[in-house]
Simulated scan of single mutants.
Amino acid sequence: MDSVDAAGLGIGDQYPPRIMGVLNVSEESPYDPSVYDDPGEAARYVDEQLIDQGADVVDVGLESANKRFEVLTAQQELERLHVAIETLESVSGDAVFSIETRYAAVADEALSQGFDMVNDVCGFADPEMPTVCDEHDAAVVKMASPPDLERPGAIEETDWAECKSEEWVREADYVDMVYEALKQNGLTEKTIVDPAFGGWSEAQTLADDRETFRRLREFRALGKPMLVSINRKNFLGEIADRETDERLPVSLAATSMAVERGAHVIRTHDVAETRDAALIGAAFSEQSTTTRDDVTVSRLDVGSTRELHAHLAERDVDPELAADWVHHAFEIDGLTADERGVLERVAGESGAVWIDLASGRSLLVGSTAAIERVAAGIRDEDGRLSVIEDELERRTR
């Protein structure tokens, strides 16, 4: 896992989780508590509500992400940039300042005027963005997005058949598309990846966000630090049946889980609370990287076949080997003696291990490939064995 130096702020496995607070100088959302168009008021907000509360990074947005508004041109963003620059000059606290923009010209001007990093919600749709960031030696957050400056995050609208292949499209699911979107147009040495949570397109569903969050560790295979923006998002509110202003508890629970699953930066409007939740997640995460005597050992964050598959593919190793290397263990209870006999026979034929335990329970252990062969071997069996087949297939993916 590469680390990123963002103007002296280390971001990566060997650093604590970083908190990105949000300031908007867009005039489209006047009731948003983080929106300011006066540099003095904006600076006070940044000092008191962001930096003093624990923000390591302040992300300044020039326009609303709300799809109801028309996308600003680069020139319109440049006309607003003076408010952001004057705010930065008036802030007394110490933080890394990020400019949220999709345009390389805006990023270039902001970085020239004192900003430290870039948050690109269009994922390098502007082909000059990586070059600009490299020239300024600036860290850049790359959000998963199609290569279109007017459709940030609309991952499903990408012509994946052209980018990948028709066969890939038939097999890919939403999270696969997010992963590939992050790879489109490359990654700089200082890229931080963002899996694009939230309603960026009409096609994106709450189930898509839940599945992306569940499989968050897969994105670590890209070898770059990861940012997640999940603060008060709808996919969390739906689980707890809470409206936006009541979603802080679910956001904090998800923050701890995100850090434990490999997130390095949490973007939030609730800085102090999110900082605490992130520290809890970090405290109970296993250390992934250790360096001693100039030797570094990194444990790949692998808890499923999919995760190992991603790591192998990024290293040009046959990903199908994942099925032989990832092992699973299942405890099964409630079977009759005849049903246990069938499973013991099929397990032995499939290269898995079947162990009878006390009180009628049994243990099934084997590689992904072996367990898949067990599932195939009992596919035509009647009764409760079909339930076991379904569970084995579902849990080895």
Rank of each mutant, 00 (worst) to 15 (best):
T87P: 05
S367Q: 03
V259N: 10
H309I: 05
I371D: 01
L343R: 06
I371F: 04
L206N: 13
S285N: 06
V346T: 13
P16W: 00
P39M: 03
D241K: 10
L222C: 09
Q113H: 13
V302Q: 03
V60K: 04
V326K: 00
E109P: 01
G351E: 04
A347V: 03
H82G: 10
I85K: 08
L300E: 08
R394N: 04
K183V: 02
V271M: 00
A254M: 09
P33C: 02
V302E: 05
D301S: 14
M177C: 12
P130V: 01
G237H: 02
A172G: 11
V250L: 08
E243A: 15
G366V: 02
A55R: 01
G262S: 12
F330L: 10
E349L: 15
E128Q: 09
V132C: 06
K164M: 14
R275S: 01
D293L: 11
T188E: 04
V193C: 12
A376I: 03
D176W: 09
D276N: 11
A369R: 15
L248H: 03
A125K: 00
F97R: 04
A313V: 09
D301M: 10
I85Y: 08
P127R: 15
A282K: 14
L81G: 05
S362F: 08
A263E: 05
H269W: 02
I355Y: 03
V326R: 00
C163K: 14
P33V: 08
S298V: 06
M143T: 09
H309D: 15
E202Y: 03
D38K: 11
L364T: 07
R384T: 14
E28M: 07
N119E: 07
S251V: 11
F284L: 15
Q49Y: 14
G199P: 10
F213M: 11
L236F: 06
R80M: 01
D276I: 12
R261E: 09
A277Y: 03
A322P: 03
L78E: 04
I388N: 07
L182I: 11
R384W: 09
D38L: 06
D52S: 13
S112F: 02
H327W: 09
Q287T: 13
H82F: 10
D194R: 05
G351F: 07
E286P: 00
E189Y: 04
Q53Y: 01
A337K: 10
V140S: 03
D2T: 11
L236T: 04
D52C: 04
A95Y: 08
D208A: 02
S386W: 08
E89S: 12
L392P: 12
P319F: 07
F284M: 14
I332H: 01
E167V: 14
S362M: 02
A263G: 13
V271C: 00
V346C: 01
S386M: 06
F284D: 06
R267P: 03
D333T: 15
V25N: 09
E157A: 08
F219K: 08
S350T: 09
Q75W: 09
G348T: 06
E339Q: 15
P147K: 00
R397G: 12
R242Y: 12
I11F: 08
G237Q: 08
P16S: 09
